[in-house]
Design a protein around this nucleic acid. Structure first.
Lengths: 206, 206
DNA sequence: CGCTGTGAACGAATTCACAGCA
DNA sequence: TGCTGTGAATTCGTTCACAGCG
């Protein structure tokens, strides 16, 4: 995993997903920085600079080979799909949590959803899912035992901080936070806040 | 709405939400840049620079007045809660869409959820909600008629681009995209991608 | 003192401009 | 000619260092 400048890294992650789509729809074999620019809104220069960092071999005839570019990015980011998967769980299986559980497409990603947690024991017994569901009580046991690295937090706001703390002390590395709370966690824990209103504000102020 | 540097703007949006929480829990009246730094992970200097842009009047005795700071940010971002609300809609009322509909907290934000759309006419007749639900067919009529500015897109992946195009031609300004598709839209349309796997990749590569 | 406000220095990211290749 | 690759210039963002205020 090469050491990439932070903004480059952010863009490459987006680019990777975009290339994946392009591969799926199989319209072209190659793509130019100009087209990528139109697709992303970033300047051609920036895109070529970003690609420069991943020192691919070939390049210039009518752009980059889409497949090669994608795999170069995967390598640089350390998310090559050959490697072992990273285990994730969802905490909070209320409407949002269970919707995420179905909607989130983990296939073709280096992540696997291996567990769900909820305080409501009736609910976890009723729900059917392709992976086991546990009581939140067992969080501290199951997370290390199952080598779960990342958690999707979809509990109610009033319990968000408390559950997050427990996740951290259970050894979690990062949290995708769907609650409306800004979590206060130690600096080495990674957090991504996912929140409709936050996004709307961002767009509005853009 | 002052013209703020982009990264400053991003941080101020986060800060605003954080200050809102602090106001709610009413523990302190003032806050220093050092404390904000601990809470956010950004340097004190950066925080003071950011605040500098909003040319507040007072400041120094034992930090900033939390309330004043928040309202200065709101003013700078143009999201002062005095102003008129911006209308939003949710498109796609499947599990995820309807979960978002309930979970998304629009109160105390400058946005209001005024409509929902779904292709399934049975569903929109069955569902109960505090605002009207329409058939997706009526999108082009209702969006201008109701002065809807932003849309939350929660349809299935295969229809995402197509619906997004229709939203744009109906006059929408921005889309919060909960689908797994990277949308290709004209540059003046604002988009925020909300996607668990994308967030996981970002965190992993961090 | 501890804190803010801010010029000045520094470092990072982007854009310019153009050489070189197919 | 249309593209990439890349030094050099430029713009943007952060940090340093310190004056000034309560």
């Amino acid at each position: 995993m090469i050491n990439l400048p932070p903004r480059t890294k952010e863009r490459l992650i987006i680019l990777e997903r975009l290339l994946e789509r392009l591969i799926e729809q199989q319209e072209d074999k190659n793509i130019t920085s100009k087209k990528l620019s139109a697709l992303t809104g970033w300047s051609e220069d920036t895109i070529r600079r970003d690609i420069l960092h991943l020192n691919m071999k070939a390049g210039s005839k009518s752009g980059y080979s889409i497949v090669e570019l994608k795999s170069a990015i995967d390598t640089a980011l350390g998310i090559g799909n050959s490697r072992q998967k990273h285990n994730c769980c969802i905490v909070g299986l209320d409407k949002l949590g269970s919707a995420l559980l179905e909607n989130s497409i983990f296939e073709n990603s280096p992540f696997t959803l291996v567990a769900g947690f909820d305080t409501n024991v009736n609910r976890i017994e009723m729900m059917k899912s392709s992976f086991p569901l546990f009581a939140t009580l067992d969080l501290e046991i199951k997370i290390p035992a199952m080598k779960i690295e990342y958690a999707v937090l979809a509990v109610s706001d009033d319990r968000a901080q408390q559950i997050a703390d427990r996740l951290v002390s259970a050894g979690i590395k990062g949290i995708v936070n769907y609650t409306n709370v800004i979590l206060h966690l130690s600096k080495n824990i990674r957090v991504r806040n996912v929140n409709t209103v936050l996004m709307l504000k961002e767009m509005y102020a853009e």
